[in-house]
């Protein structure tokens, strides 16, 4: 997989004027309208917004799973298609989507198979990822024999194993208990900082957004749009105790305010 060398000057993911219309019964439904974003390389950006505001749709568009109706996406000077076929993406879907006939290890090896990595190296790298998400000892289990939280962690390991340039995370910690979620937040921060990957996270959890992000994009719905872009300038590395600091709580409160503003406007309609 010869990754097309990106020109040195373009080091952001730029989304410009992106809109998405879905064909529905009796016309079209506008899921996203005029989205403009800039994700700096190596940055951690989070999309925060109510259910149905188009977060997953936006992730799908950037990752070239679907094509937008309007607008352009540029990934470090590449088209989404070029970036995808160069194997730069790691994607954690909203559901784990594991292959039921493959063991946890086999599922994590899948992206490496697609890239033609030799078997021994595949095994080694997949094992290392499973260890990272705390699943060593479970590598031979079939997905049906894993708990929901374990299946999610397998999906995260599968996304990380290719050492992606861009990591898409669609509510990756849904269904994990609160303690495990916090642990995974700390882990994710560490992995992200160590790898230098550009991360784009979707979450409903405000504390998680503040804890992990450089930038939080607050979205509203009908149609999906950007309400505000907020820089979280807390020092790194952050640990769980930071979540009790005054700055942290201030960010949390203001983001919650922005979100509930959107909820109110929907109720008022």
């Amino acid at each position: 997989m010869g990754a097309a060398a990106a020109p040195a000057e373009a080091r952001t993911v730029t989304i410009d004027g992106v809109g998405m219309d879905f064909a529905v019964k009796g016309g079209t439904f506008t899921a996203l309208d005029d989205i403009a974003l800039e994700l700096p390389e190596g940055g951690f950006t989070t999309l925060l917004g109510p259910s149905g505001c188009g977060k997953s749709t936006l992730l799908r568009i950037i990752a070239d799973v679907i094509e937008p109706t309007r607008g352009t996406v540029d990934l470090f000077g590449m088209t989404p298609r070029q970036a995808r076929t160069s194997g730069l993406f790691g994607f954690v879907f909203q559901d784990p989507v594991l292959l039921p006939w493959r063991s946890a290890l086999g599922n994590v090896e899948l992206p490496l198979e697609a890239q033609g990595v030799p078997k021994a190296e595949r095994r080694e790298r997949a094992m290392a990822q499973l260890q990272l998400v705390g699943l060593d000892g479970f590598e031979d289990r079939l997905p049906a024999k894993l708990s929901g939280g374990m299946a999610r962690r397998v999906a995260i390991a599968r996304a990380l194993v290719v050492e992606p340039s861009i990591l898409f995370l669609d509510e990756p910690f849904n269904g994990l208990d609160e303690l495990r979620r916090r642990q995974m937040n700390v882990e994710l921060q560490r992995i992200w900082a160590a790898s230098g990957t550009t991360a784009l996270l979707v979450t409903h959890n405000v504390a998680e957004a503040v804890f992990l992000s450089d930038t939080v994009i607050v979205m509203g719905r009908n149609p999906g749009h950007v309400i505000e872009r907020r820089t979280i300038d807390l020092p790194r590395p952050r640990d769980i105790d930071n979540a009790l600091s005054a700055d942290f709580i201030a960010h949390e409160q203001e983001l919650t305010q922005l979100l509930s503003g959107d909820y109110r406007s929907v109720v008022d309609e």
């Binding site: 799973v65 995808r84 194997g87 993406f89 994607f91 879907f93 899948l110 697609a114």
Partner: peptide
């Protein structure tokens, strides 16, 4: 499952694979 199709697309797997 259409989600499996999405997975194969993200992983840039061809039709045969």
């Amino acid at each position: 499952d259409p989600r499996v199709q999405e997975l194969s697309r993200v992983l840039a797997m061809g039709y045969t694979r």
